[in-house]
Amino acid sequence: MSTKLEVKNVSYEYSPNTPFAASALTDVSCAFEAGMITGLIGHTGSGKSTLVQMLNGLLRPVSGQILLDGRDIWENPKQLSRVRYRVGLVFQYPEYQLFEETVSADIAYGPKNMGLDGAEIDARVREAAEFVGLEADLLDKSPFELSGGQKRRVAIAGILAMRPEVLVLDEPAAGLDPIGRETIFDAVRAYQQAREATVIIVSHSMEDMAKYAERLVVMSESRVILAGTPDEIFRRADLLCSIGLDVPQITRTMMRLSELGLPCRTDIFTIEAAKEEILRLWGKERENA
């Protein structure tokens, strides 16, 4: 396992030297493993959105480094646009950034800025549209005619078309219904597997993270407070609750069950795991009876 992107002792402050100055990141360090989906969780104002904007050089750390494949992305500020093509960032509610006359032109905006030729751009637009499940007949429509969920997918395709090695998404499923959420996460996973991309998903939905993330980084009050595999993180469900995060309902049910006095595991965060645990306990109960 190798580290693709590393955040080293990064600090950041908003509006420095003004009455509105506020620390957004305090000595943050964390590493994102190559080819994995990492979930970045924390409540609003924990600094996760700031951190995300550091990863592709939109914000410059006051101190510390962001290392992409071991090299500081600020080593040569003139090359920053190259970093932005390699680390694709999808903002929250990205559908509000669509501007072109047709869906395909909008998806092509990034690749065009990269200076690719027409045939290559076409191929990438088609590939990206496929990842997010946009039907071919939508490509010539105006993005403003589409439904909310479709617009969201167009916006994500606009980033995928740049073929980033690292894909960062800030709350990609916010405001969508269950089917919409699933479509988005499936698209992200399809891209990750096809391109062996490193994926970072910012979310406050622990249920989604339990389902999709292979690693988790937890932020609170401008700091990283936990990092590890979902098993390791959800074992600390009490800590997650105490910093105002919403642990999955299934985890809370198991925690309550253990509080009632039943010796059961509480590091459970999927229905499948809960089923196994209950069946195990049921088997034991049967034996005793």
Partner: peptide
């Protein structure tokens, strides 16, 4: 899913509180 596995879990539940209590009763007979 537990019902599908043949466990006598009874009526559907919607809250974690009730779910935990029912499971406790079931596993602690």
């Amino acid at each position: 899913v537990l019902r599908q596995q043949g466990l006598p879990v009874g009526e559907p539940v919607i809250s974690e509180e009730e779910g935990a209590e029912r499971l406790y009763a079931l596993l602690n007979q």
